[in-house]
Amino acid sequence: MWPLALCKPGEKVVVKDIAGGMGVRKRLESMGLYPGEEITVLSAQKGPVIVRVKGCRVGIGRGMAHKIMVAANGQKGEEAVNG
């Protein structure tokens, strides 16, 4: 397990755990991001991270991206986006 902030663009990962307050967890949940869901990292530069979750692009601030723990899903995505 490692934080989402350390992912590379194009990586497909599974969300394992979300630290942070109830409000933030619920907010992410209603956008489709919850433990067990597979997401694709579209862009991960020095700033915020962009992921694709349930077909939508969601931008997550760097601080928050450190609190979302993810794990490998086995295969690599084909849609590598070079940041």
């Binding site: 942070g20 933030v24 907010r27 992410l28 956008m31 915020p48 962009i50 939508c56 692009r57 969601v58 931008g59 997550i60 601030g61 601080g63 928050m64 609190k67």
Partner: peptide, 12 residues
């Protein structure tokens, strides 16, 4: 305290 974490959808 910290500002609210940035979480926003980037619409198509």
């Amino acid at each position: 305290g910290e500002p609210a974490p940035l979480i926003m959808e980037l619409p198509p």
